[in-house]
Every structure is written in structure tokens, then in C-alpha cells.
Design a protein around this nucleic acid. Structure first.
Length: 231
DNA sequence: ACGGTCAAGTTGCAGA
DNA sequence: TCTGCAACTTGACCGT
């Protein structure tokens, strides 16, 4: 089995040789490892760093402390989008690595640990599973495309070989009997297993090239090019 | 402006 | 019926 871990931590397991996941999106965001250090968007500070300033609620944008009634007051629009901090993401990824689904207890514990609502943990896991599946599907798609390509090529090659063999059948070689010097019937011919030449069942062959110009033009109908790959 | 990402909402289904 | 999940959708936000 092959495992790939994208930069976002997506763990993909698929029996596809030579494939690597090149995507990963979570790195694109702002690096808020050190939120307090600045240089990052304010949103990250809002969500995850309990504002000691005062009137800022501790977990704005849908985290633990947000009440349902706060949601609807502004109208039909959703509350601001929650962005998980690096640490929250890291812990979620870590537990996802251990288990792709959570028991209610695990969910609760994780929510407390992350200072999120259980529902948010649940949603994160749902979305995470969806992303994993999507990545896996994309990888499978790539793999199948490659298979299709190589099979198409193989098919072309076999078609050519069939054409060559058909050409041989149209103008079979004439094998003379070593005794009577008369052409032998096809039923009396056999293939030499060593050199793969068509020979008379008995005695050394005397082969005369076929009269057909088309067959004569074919490159050595007795030793047709064989595929390099053995079946 | 636009496309990508992602948290969250909605819906339908399966199992207890 | 309830619960949990997958699949799909929505909308905020970000980088270009």
C-alpha cells in the first residue's frame, strides 16, 4: 500500500504506484503561529485568542460562547466565518489521524480542549472526511487516466500486430516438400519452436517467398516482430 | 473581479 | 423516531 500525506495533512491511502498528491490548501492562509506577534489578519486573533481587552466576547464567530440568538440578529446573513487557529487545526488533524470518526465523548473532549463547540468539531470532521475522499477520488481518476493511456497504446500495438498477422494469412508461404519438391498443403506445415519458422512436418524446409507483392513487402512474415513484453 | 478554500447549513438515507 | 453520516450547497474570506 502507498500512503501520501499532503501539505495539509490529508492522509491518502491508495494502491497506486508512482502517484503523489500535489495539492494542499491550508498552507495558503496566513501563518498565525504567533498571533500575538502581528503580521497576520485580525480575524485570526479574534477567533482564537481570548481577548483580554474586555468587551470582546471570548469565542466570537461561532465558537463555544456564541449563542443561537446572536446569529439571527444581523439579518439573513451568516455570522463571520470562523477560521481555526494553527493550533486548533493541528490538534484536529492529530485526532483525525488517530480516528476518522469521533464518539460523542471524544467529540466533547476535543471541543473542550479546542474551546470550540462540539458541533464545530463534528463539522470539521465531516468536512475533513469529505476532503480526504475527494483527494482520493482525484488520485484514482489520475491513475485511471494513466491506465487508459497505456491500454490505448497497447491496443494500438496489438491492432498493428493483428494486421500483420492478417497479411500473413492472406498470402501464406509456400513450402515445398523436400522429397517431391511440390508445394505442401497448409495442414502439413508446422512451426519450428526454436526458430519459429514455418516448416514441413518432416524434413528441412524449402521456403519460397509468396508471390503476393503485398505479402512480399511485409518484413519477414516468418519472423514477425514480437512484442518486447512477454504476456 | 475572480477562483479557491473552508466552515457551516440543508437534505436524504441508513441503522438502532 | 432519533441520530449520525454523506453529499451537496452556501457564503465569507483570501490570494492573485
Amino acid at each position: 500500500m502507498m500512503g501520501a500525506t499532503s501539505p495539509s495533512g490529508l492522509e491518502l491511502t491508495m494502491a497506486v504506484p508512482g502517484l503523489s498528491s500535489s495539492s494542499g490548501s491550508e498552507g495558503a492562509g496566513c501563518n498565525n503561529n504567533n498571533n500575538a506577534g502581528g503580521g497576520c489578519s485580525m480575524r485570526d486573533l479574534d477567533i482564537n485568542q481570548p481577548a483580554s481587552g474586555g468587551e470582546e466576547e471570548e469565542f466570537p464567530m461561532g465558537s463555544v460562547e456564541e449563542d443561537e440568538e446572536e446569529r439571527g440578529v444581523g439579518g439573513p446573513h451568516r455570522p463571520k466565518k470562523l477560521r481555526l487557529s494553527k493550533e486548533q487545526s493541528r490538534l484536529l488533524e492529530e485526532s483525525f489521524r488517530l480516528n476518522h470518526t469521533l464518539t460523542p465523548k471524544q467529540k466533547e473532549a476535543l471541543a473542550i480542549k479546542l474551546k470550540l463547540r462540539p458541533r464545530q468539531v463534528e463539522v470539521w470532521f465531516q468536512n475533513r472526511r469529505a476532503r480526504t475522499k475527494l483527494k482520493q477520488t482525484e488520485m484514482e481518476c489520475e491513475y485511471l487516466k494513466r491506465c487508459f493511456g497505456s491500454l490505448t497504446e497497447e491496443n494500438r500495438r496489438l491492432q498493428r500486430e493483428v494486421e500483420e498477422l492478417r497479411a500473413m494469412r492472406v498470402a501464406p508461404p509456400t513450402v515445398l516438400s523436400p522429397h517431391t519438391r511440390q508445394p505442401l498443403p497448409a495442414s502439413a506445415l508446422t512451426m519450428c519452436p526454436r526458430c519459429e519458422r514455418i516448416t514441413a512436418a518432416t524434413g528441412p524446409p524449402t521456403v519460397r517467398p509468396p508471390p503476393s507483392s503485398a505479402a512480399a513487402a511485409a518484413p519477414s512474415p516468418f519472423h514477425p516482430r514480437r512484442p518486447s513484453a512477454a504476456f
